[in-house]
């Protein structure tokens, strides 16, 4: 499996073919619709990541020290952002998740969603994934 750094590089490459903002968002929304599938059983109160404006569900599993994630949102854009996070983090060793520096959001110009934490819960999602990874390393999760 490609490393977190390699995947981030791939995402940046993919977006670089889309100079216009509406194209980027159209692509992001498409990614979200294709790559976020959350079984109904995981759509629970416990799995909700609180954002001020959109609802996000995040299901996390730890298997042999690796982190596996599923997510969904009621906002198409947040769903797309979640899909990118899953692409980067899901299936990665917990150690790598903890250490990962998320640079691609800035490079593809979507970092405003990361800074406006109150708006969409994306930052809360990243923090939750990292905290979960820390438990996963310890084997407690």
């Amino acid at each position: 499996m490609a490393s977190i750094q390699e995947i981030q590089g791939q995402i940046v490459d993919d977006f670089s073919f889309l100079p216009a903002w509406d194209e980027r968002y159209a692509y992001l929304i498409e990614l979200g619709q294709k790559n976020t599938l959350l079984p109904e059983e995981y759509r629970t109160e416990d799995n909700i990541v609180r954002g001020c404006q959109s609802l996000v569900w995040l299901h996390k599993e730890c298997r042999q020290g690796e982190v596996f994630l599923q997510a969904d949102s009621d906002s198409l854009i947040v769903k797309g952002l979640a899909a990118l996070l899953l692409q980067v983090f899901s299936g990665q060793p917990a150690e790598a998740v903890i250490k990962a520096d998320l640079t691609f959001f800035k490079e593809i110009g979507l970092d405003k969603h990361l800074s406006s934490q109150r708006a969409n819960g994306l930052l809360a999602m990243v923090e939750e994934i990292k905290a979960f990874a820390a438990q996963c390393v310890g084997g407690a999760a």
């Binding site: 509406d22 968002y25 404006q53 959109s54 198409l76 947040v78």
Partner: peptide, 20 residues
């Protein structure tokens, strides 16, 4: 979703607020 509409309106230079 209001967040999607607000975000996408921004790409057209239109500043509105979304949320509660």
């Amino acid at each position: 979703h209001h967040y999607d509409l607000g975000t996408l309106l921004d790409t057209h230079g239109v500043a509105v607020r979304t949320g509660h």
